[in-house]
Design a protein around this nucleic acid. Structure first.
Lengths: 136, 136
DNA sequence: ACAAGTGTACTATGCCGCTTGTTACACCAA
DNA sequence: TTGGTGTAACAAGCGGCATAGTACACTTGT
Protein backbone atom coordinates (compact mmCIF):
# COMPACT_ATOMS: atom_id res chain seq x y z
CA UNK A 1 0.00 0.00 0.00
CA UNK A 2 1.04 3.57 -0.64
CA UNK A 3 2.27 5.25 2.57
CA UNK A 4 0.31 8.45 1.93
CA UNK A 5 -3.11 9.59 0.79
CA UNK A 6 -3.77 11.74 -2.22
CA UNK A 7 -6.86 13.88 -2.79
CA UNK A 8 -6.70 15.28 -6.31
CA UNK A 9 -7.13 19.01 -6.66
CA UNK A 10 -7.66 20.75 -10.00
CA UNK A 11 -5.30 23.51 -11.12
CA UNK A 12 -2.24 22.10 -9.41
CA UNK A 13 0.29 19.94 -11.32
CA UNK A 14 -0.17 16.27 -10.52
CA UNK A 15 3.50 15.55 -9.87
CA UNK A 16 3.58 18.44 -7.42
CA UNK A 17 0.65 17.10 -5.46
CA UNK A 18 2.15 13.63 -5.20
CA UNK A 19 5.54 15.01 -4.18
CA UNK A 20 3.91 17.17 -1.52
CA UNK A 21 1.92 14.26 -0.15
CA UNK A 22 5.14 12.29 0.16
CA UNK A 23 6.93 15.21 1.82
CA UNK A 24 4.05 15.56 4.25
CA UNK A 25 4.27 11.86 5.10
CA UNK A 26 7.99 12.19 5.76
CA UNK A 27 7.61 15.24 7.99
CA UNK A 28 4.79 13.68 9.96
CA UNK A 29 6.75 10.49 10.58
CA UNK A 30 4.64 8.12 8.52
CA UNK A 31 7.70 7.70 6.31
CA UNK A 32 10.81 7.36 8.45
CA UNK A 33 14.47 7.60 7.36
CA UNK A 34 15.74 4.30 6.02
CA UNK A 35 12.33 3.03 4.98
CA UNK A 36 11.84 2.07 1.33
CA UNK A 37 9.91 4.45 -0.93
CA UNK A 38 7.37 2.98 -3.38
CA UNK A 39 8.86 2.19 -6.77
CA UNK A 40 8.03 4.32 -9.79
CA UNK A 41 5.91 1.57 -11.32
CA UNK A 42 4.12 0.87 -8.03
CA UNK A 43 3.24 4.54 -7.69
CA UNK A 44 2.03 4.50 -11.27
CA UNK A 45 -0.20 1.50 -10.65
CA UNK A 46 -1.62 2.43 -7.24
CA UNK A 47 -2.24 6.11 -7.95
CA UNK A 48 -3.34 5.48 -11.54
CA UNK A 49 -0.65 7.79 -12.81
CA UNK A 50 1.65 7.46 -15.78
CA UNK A 51 5.15 6.13 -15.14
CA UNK A 52 6.75 9.30 -16.44
CA UNK A 53 4.80 11.41 -13.96
CA UNK A 54 5.79 9.12 -11.09
CA UNK A 55 9.40 9.27 -12.23
CA UNK A 56 9.19 13.03 -12.13
CA UNK A 57 8.11 12.84 -8.49
CA UNK A 58 11.02 10.62 -7.52
CA UNK A 59 13.44 12.88 -9.39
CA UNK A 60 12.15 15.98 -7.58
CA UNK A 61 12.31 14.40 -4.13
CA UNK A 62 15.79 13.08 -4.87
CA UNK A 63 16.98 16.52 -5.96
CA UNK A 64 15.61 17.95 -2.70
CA UNK A 65 17.67 15.44 -0.75
CA UNK A 66 14.67 13.60 0.64
CA UNK A 67 15.21 10.35 -1.25
CA UNK A 68 18.34 8.33 -1.87
CA UNK A 69 18.61 6.13 -4.95
CA UNK A 70 20.09 2.61 -4.80
CA UNK A 71 20.63 1.73 -8.46
CA UNK A 72 18.82 -1.44 -9.42
CA UNK A 73 17.28 -1.75 -5.94
CA UNK A 74 14.97 1.22 -5.40
CA UNK A 75 14.79 4.43 -3.41
CA UNK A 76 15.03 4.95 0.33
CA UNK A 77 13.96 7.84 2.57
CA UNK A 78 16.99 9.96 3.46
CA UNK A 79 18.35 11.00 6.82
CA UNK A 80 17.46 14.69 7.24
CA UNK A 81 20.43 16.86 6.36
CA UNK A 82 22.16 18.67 9.25
CA UNK A 83 19.87 21.61 9.93
CA UNK A 84 21.22 24.67 8.16
CA UNK A 85 19.05 27.59 9.25
CA UNK A 86 21.23 30.48 8.18
CA UNK A 87 18.70 32.06 5.84
CA UNK A 88 15.20 31.18 7.12
CA UNK A 89 13.06 34.21 6.26
CA UNK A 90 14.62 34.65 2.84
CA UNK A 91 13.66 31.22 1.53
CA UNK A 92 10.00 31.04 2.48
CA UNK A 93 9.50 34.79 2.46
CA UNK A 94 7.21 35.01 -0.58
CA UNK A 95 5.05 32.13 0.67
CA UNK A 96 4.60 33.79 4.06
CA UNK A 97 3.80 37.09 2.37
CA UNK A 98 1.06 35.51 0.32
CA UNK A 99 -0.40 33.85 3.39
CA UNK A 100 -0.32 37.07 5.40
CA UNK A 101 -2.02 39.11 2.68
CA UNK A 102 -4.68 36.44 2.24
CA UNK A 103 -5.32 36.39 5.99
CA UNK A 104 -5.60 40.18 6.15
CA UNK A 105 -8.01 40.15 3.21
CA UNK A 106 -10.50 38.13 5.19
CA UNK A 107 -10.23 40.24 8.29
CA UNK A 108 -8.15 37.92 10.43
CA UNK A 109 -5.91 39.20 13.21
CA UNK A 110 -2.29 38.19 13.66
CA UNK A 111 -3.37 36.02 16.58
CA UNK A 112 -5.93 34.24 14.38
CA UNK A 113 -3.23 33.43 11.84
CA UNK A 114 -0.73 32.33 14.48
CA UNK A 115 -3.35 30.05 15.98
CA UNK A 116 -4.09 28.46 12.62
CA UNK A 117 -0.40 27.89 11.93
CA UNK A 118 0.09 26.29 15.34
CA UNK A 119 -2.93 24.04 14.88
CA UNK A 120 -1.70 22.73 11.50
CA UNK A 121 1.79 22.29 12.95
CA UNK A 122 0.59 20.19 15.87
CA UNK A 123 -1.62 18.14 13.56
CA UNK A 124 1.57 16.65 12.09
CA UNK A 125 3.81 16.65 15.15
CA UNK A 126 2.22 13.92 17.34
CA UNK A 127 2.87 11.18 14.80
CA UNK A 128 6.39 12.48 14.57
CA UNK A 129 6.98 12.23 18.31
CA UNK A 130 5.48 8.73 18.42
CA UNK A 131 7.80 7.64 15.62
CA UNK A 132 10.84 8.85 17.52
CA UNK A 133 9.72 7.07 20.69
CA UNK A 134 9.49 3.72 18.90
CA UNK A 135 13.02 3.93 17.48
CA UNK A 136 15.60 5.27 19.96
CA UNK B 1 2.12 56.60 -11.36
CA UNK B 2 1.23 53.01 -10.46
CA UNK B 3 0.52 52.66 -6.72
CA UNK B 4 2.51 49.45 -6.36
CA UNK B 5 5.79 47.94 -7.41
CA UNK B 6 6.19 44.78 -9.44
CA UNK B 7 9.25 42.55 -9.54
CA UNK B 8 8.75 39.93 -12.22
CA UNK B 9 9.28 36.34 -11.17
CA UNK B 10 9.47 33.43 -13.61
CA UNK B 11 7.09 30.50 -13.31
CA UNK B 12 4.20 32.51 -11.91
CA UNK B 13 1.40 33.80 -14.18
CA UNK B 14 1.82 37.49 -14.90
CA UNK B 15 -1.78 38.45 -14.11
CA UNK B 16 -1.47 36.69 -10.75
CA UNK B 17 1.64 38.66 -9.83
CA UNK B 18 0.03 41.98 -10.71
CA UNK B 19 -3.16 41.12 -8.83
CA UNK B 20 -1.13 40.11 -5.78
CA UNK B 21 0.90 43.32 -5.87
CA UNK B 22 -2.34 45.29 -5.92
CA UNK B 23 -3.79 43.23 -3.07
CA UNK B 24 -0.63 43.81 -1.06
CA UNK B 25 -0.90 47.55 -1.65
CA UNK B 26 -4.48 47.53 -0.46
CA UNK B 27 -3.73 45.55 2.70
CA UNK B 28 -0.74 47.71 3.55
CA UNK B 29 -2.75 50.92 3.18
CA UNK B 30 -1.02 52.33 0.12
CA UNK B 31 -4.33 51.90 -1.68
CA UNK B 32 -7.17 53.05 0.54
CA UNK B 33 -10.92 52.45 0.10
CA UNK B 34 -12.49 55.00 -2.23
CA UNK B 35 -9.26 55.74 -4.08
CA UNK B 36 -9.25 55.23 -7.86
CA UNK B 37 -7.54 52.18 -9.28
CA UNK B 38 -5.37 52.59 -12.41
CA UNK B 39 -7.29 52.05 -15.62
CA UNK B 40 -6.75 48.92 -17.68
CA UNK B 41 -4.98 50.86 -20.41
CA UNK B 42 -2.81 52.74 -17.89
CA UNK B 43 -1.73 49.47 -16.30
CA UNK B 44 -0.99 48.14 -19.76
CA UNK B 45 1.20 51.14 -20.63
CA UNK B 46 3.06 51.55 -17.33
CA UNK B 47 3.71 47.87 -16.66
CA UNK B 48 4.36 47.08 -20.33
CA UNK B 49 1.64 44.49 -20.26
CA UNK B 50 -1.02 43.70 -22.83
CA UNK B 51 -4.47 45.21 -22.27
CA UNK B 52 -6.07 41.78 -22.07
CA UNK B 53 -3.74 40.76 -19.26
CA UNK B 54 -4.48 43.97 -17.35
CA UNK B 55 -8.19 43.42 -17.87
CA UNK B 56 -7.82 39.96 -16.38
CA UNK B 57 -6.30 41.51 -13.26
CA UNK B 58 -9.18 43.97 -12.83
CA UNK B 59 -11.70 41.20 -13.39
CA UNK B 60 -10.08 39.00 -10.73
CA UNK B 61 -9.88 41.78 -8.14
CA UNK B 62 -13.48 42.74 -8.85
CA UNK B 63 -14.64 39.15 -8.41
CA UNK B 64 -12.85 39.06 -5.06
CA UNK B 65 -14.77 42.14 -3.97
CA UNK B 66 -11.68 44.34 -3.76
CA UNK B 67 -12.58 46.64 -6.66
CA UNK B 68 -15.86 48.30 -7.58
CA UNK B 69 -16.59 49.16 -11.20
CA UNK B 70 -18.21 52.47 -12.18
CA UNK B 71 -19.22 51.93 -15.83
CA UNK B 72 -17.64 54.48 -18.11
CA UNK B 73 -15.72 56.03 -15.22
CA UNK B 74 -13.24 53.48 -13.95
CA UNK B 75 -12.68 51.27 -10.91
CA UNK B 76 -12.42 52.21 -7.26
CA UNK B 77 -10.98 50.41 -4.26
CA UNK B 78 -13.79 48.82 -2.26
CA UNK B 79 -14.69 49.13 1.39
CA UNK B 80 -13.60 45.87 3.03
CA UNK B 81 -16.59 43.55 3.35
CA UNK B 82 -17.97 42.99 6.87
CA UNK B 83 -15.54 40.51 8.38
CA UNK B 84 -16.99 37.03 8.04
CA UNK B 85 -14.65 34.71 9.94
CA UNK B 86 -16.86 31.68 10.27
CA UNK B 87 -14.56 29.37 8.36
CA UNK B 88 -10.97 30.63 8.82
CA UNK B 89 -8.86 27.48 8.94
CA UNK B 90 -10.78 25.80 6.14
CA UNK B 91 -10.07 28.49 3.55
CA UNK B 92 -6.34 28.94 3.94
CA UNK B 93 -5.74 25.45 5.28
CA UNK B 94 -3.83 24.06 2.27
CA UNK B 95 -1.60 27.14 2.08
CA UNK B 96 -0.72 26.87 5.77
CA UNK B 97 -0.04 23.16 5.38
CA UNK B 98 2.40 23.78 2.56
CA UNK B 99 4.18 26.43 4.58
CA UNK B 100 4.42 24.21 7.65
CA UNK B 101 5.81 21.26 5.71
CA UNK B 102 8.34 23.48 3.97
CA UNK B 103 9.43 24.92 7.32
CA UNK B 104 9.80 21.48 8.88
CA UNK B 105 11.83 20.30 5.88
CA UNK B 106 14.53 22.86 6.61
CA UNK B 107 14.65 22.09 10.31
CA UNK B 108 12.81 25.12 11.61
CA UNK B 109 10.97 25.08 14.92
CA UNK B 110 7.40 26.27 15.39
CA UNK B 111 8.77 29.35 17.11
CA UNK B 112 11.01 30.12 14.12
CA UNK B 113 8.01 29.96 11.80
CA UNK B 114 5.81 32.05 14.08
CA UNK B 115 8.54 34.67 14.30
CA UNK B 116 8.81 34.85 10.52
CA UNK B 117 5.06 35.20 10.14
CA UNK B 118 4.95 37.99 12.71
CA UNK B 119 7.81 39.83 11.05
CA UNK B 120 6.16 39.77 7.61
CA UNK B 121 2.87 40.80 9.22
CA UNK B 122 4.34 43.83 10.95
CA UNK B 123 6.18 44.81 7.79
CA UNK B 124 2.79 45.69 6.27
CA UNK B 125 0.94 46.86 9.34
CA UNK B 126 2.69 50.20 10.13
CA UNK B 127 1.66 51.77 6.83
CA UNK B 128 -1.83 50.52 7.53
CA UNK B 129 -1.98 52.19 10.95
CA UNK B 130 -0.59 55.43 9.52
CA UNK B 131 -3.26 55.43 6.83
CA UNK B 132 -6.01 55.04 9.42
CA UNK B 133 -4.57 57.86 11.53
CA UNK B 134 -4.72 60.29 8.61
CA UNK B 135 -8.35 59.58 7.87
CA UNK B 136 -10.52 59.28 11.01
C1' DA C 1 -22.66 66.68 -30.90
C1' DC C 2 -18.17 65.36 -30.51
C1' DA C 3 -13.86 63.36 -28.87
C1' DA C 4 -11.50 60.95 -25.40
C1' DG C 5 -11.52 58.18 -21.67
C1' DT C 6 -13.50 54.07 -19.16
C1' DG C 7 -14.61 48.58 -18.74
C1' DT C 8 -15.81 44.57 -21.51
C1' DA C 9 -16.23 40.97 -25.17
C1' DC C 10 -14.73 38.30 -28.93
C1' DT C 11 -11.51 35.76 -32.09
C1' DA C 12 -6.95 34.35 -33.33
C1' DT C 13 -2.12 33.10 -32.80
C1' DG C 14 2.22 31.41 -30.78
C1' DC C 15 4.37 29.46 -26.84
C1' DC C 16 5.15 26.42 -23.01
C1' DG C 17 4.07 23.13 -19.34
C1' DC C 18 1.50 18.94 -18.05
C1' DT C 19 0.18 14.27 -18.90
C1' DT C 20 0.05 10.22 -21.27
C1' DG C 21 2.05 6.79 -24.53
C1' DT C 22 5.80 4.03 -26.12
C1' DT C 23 10.32 2.16 -26.37
C1' DA C 24 14.76 1.37 -24.74
C1' DC C 25 18.86 0.91 -21.66
C1' DA C 26 21.80 -0.19 -17.31
C1' DC C 27 21.58 -2.02 -12.96
C1' DC C 28 20.69 -5.66 -9.16
C1' DA C 29 18.49 -9.86 -6.84
C1' DA C 30 16.44 -14.54 -6.49
C1' DT D 1 17.59 -16.06 -16.93
C1' DT D 2 13.76 -13.62 -15.14
C1' DG D 3 11.78 -9.91 -12.94
C1' DG D 4 12.23 -5.79 -10.53
C1' DT D 5 14.61 -1.23 -10.01
C1' DG D 6 15.68 3.94 -11.85
C1' DT D 7 16.52 6.59 -16.07
C1' DA D 8 16.34 8.50 -20.72
C1' DA D 9 14.42 9.80 -25.09
C1' DC D 10 10.78 11.03 -28.37
C1' DA D 11 5.97 11.94 -29.79
C1' DA D 12 1.27 13.39 -29.30
C1' DG D 13 -2.73 15.84 -27.31
C1' DC D 14 -4.44 19.17 -24.20
C1' DG D 15 -4.89 23.44 -21.81
C1' DG D 16 -3.33 27.82 -19.88
C1' DC D 17 -0.80 32.13 -20.67
C1' DA D 18 0.32 36.27 -23.10
C1' DT D 19 -0.03 38.83 -27.05
C1' DA D 20 -2.58 41.01 -31.00
C1' DG D 21 -6.38 43.26 -33.10
C1' DT D 22 -11.11 44.88 -33.34
C1' DA D 23 -15.39 46.25 -31.62
C1' DC D 24 -19.16 47.96 -28.44
C1' DA D 25 -21.59 50.60 -24.56
C1' DC D 26 -20.76 53.77 -21.33
C1' DT D 27 -19.46 58.55 -19.12
C1' DT D 28 -17.03 62.96 -18.93
C1' DG D 29 -15.35 67.38 -20.81
C1' DT D 30 -15.39 70.50 -24.48
Amino acid sequence: MIPFRLVLQPGIPLHEQVAFAAKKAMMSGRLRPGEPFPSVRTLSRELKIHVNTAQRVVAALTQEGLLEVRPGIGTVVCQPAPARRYDRGRVLGPEVDQLVVEAMKMGLTLEDLQETVEERWRRLQPERAAAKANQP
